[in-house]
Amino acid sequence: MNPLEMSGLELLRAAASGRLPQSSMAKTIPMSFAEVDMGYVKMTARAGVQHLNPMGGVHGGFAATVLDSVTGCAVQSALEAGVGYGTIDLQVKMLRPVPRDQDVMAEGRIVHVSRNLATSEGTLKSREGKLLATATATCFLKRG
């Protein structure tokens, strides 16, 4: 199974099913796929003691990283084999503190894809469904 010969959707589904290894970032920020579809990705994540800021709260970088992952993966799900992407802009709005030692749910959706750019949006919610943070992302597409 050569990842370079797989579409973005095939690659993400292979990672979600365990046929391909997860990214190393999924170990740093414990997160895993809950759902993968064309233009849509859902992940669970969990902040631990290693993600705390000096005040004892979950660092904002945790939410930003999870949201960067779901918005980027939503874009990747629509790409054909051999096409990559990179985030060039990520805007995150923190709305509530992220809980420690509890699963949170992140969803990413494509907004628009053109030849060279793609935009997506994401949400991070508590297990009770409370909105914790939102994000919009712009990605450049690396073709051939």
Rank of each mutant, 00 (worst) to 15 (best):
Met6Tyr: 02
Met6Pro: 00
Ser7Asp: 11
Gly8Met: 09
Leu12Asp: 01
Ala14Val: 10
Ala14Lys: 07
Ala16Ile: 08
Ser17Glu: 13
Arg19Asn: 12
Gln22His: 14
Gln22Lys: 13
Gln22Tyr: 15
Thr28Met: 15
Thr28Pro: 01
Met31Glu: 02
Phe33Gln: 02
Ala34Tyr: 03
Tyr40Asn: 13
Thr44Ala: 05
Thr44Val: 13
Arg46Gln: 12
Gly48Glu: 14
Gly48Leu: 15
His51Tyr: 05
Gly61Lys: 06
Ala63Tyr: 12
Gly72Thr: 06
Ser77Lys: 12
Ala78Val: 11
Glu80Arg: 10
Ala81Gly: 09
Gly82Ala: 04
Gly82Trp: 01
Tyr85Ile: 01
Ile88Tyr: 02
Asp89Trp: 03
Met94Asp: 00
Arg96Ala: 10
Val98His: 00
Pro99Leu: 10
Arg100Ile: 15
Arg100Pro: 00
Val104Cys: 07
Met105Pro: 00
Glu107Met: 12
Arg109Ser: 08
Ile110Thr: 04
Val113Thr: 05
Arg115Leu: 15
Arg115Phe: 14
Asn116Gln: 14
Ser120Lys: 02
Gly122Asn: 06
Gly122Asp: 12
Gly122Ser: 06
Ser126Asp: 11
Glu128Gln: 15
Gly129Val: 12
Thr136Val: 10
Ala137Trp: 00
Ala137Cys: 14
Phe140Arg: 03
Lys142His: 15
